[in-house]
Amino acid sequence: MSEAPDLPLWAALLVSVLVLLGAVIALIGSIGLLRLPDFYSRVHAPSLGATVGAGCLLVGSMICFSVLQGRMLVHELLIALFLTITTPVTLMLLARAALHRDRVERNGDAPERDPEPIDIA
């Protein structure tokens, strides 16, 4: 059982709900990492925890510390900003690396050539 700060009841309830929701979403993302059948599908899984999962936890943390210290404390925004910039970079690089490797090896996991592009006027 972990310790917890003494918040007013409404704040405690709000923070609890946000923390639990964030953890559940991160957990679903990790389950996806295990259950999805191939690498390119699995790339989609981590972005669950990194977007809404992290968002809920960070908003919970913001509310908790703002109420505790009696002033706006929103430094968690930095983590949110950092995550929104880094997650796409890592996932994109990984997907491209995997595509490159699969195409060099010609193992059939990735299409040899790009599919015909769709045009919408």
Partner: peptide, 9 residues
């Protein structure tokens, strides 16, 4: 409120 928060954490 401490109890609620510590359980959910």
């Amino acid at each position: 409120s401490v109890l609620i928060l510590s359980w959910s954490l």
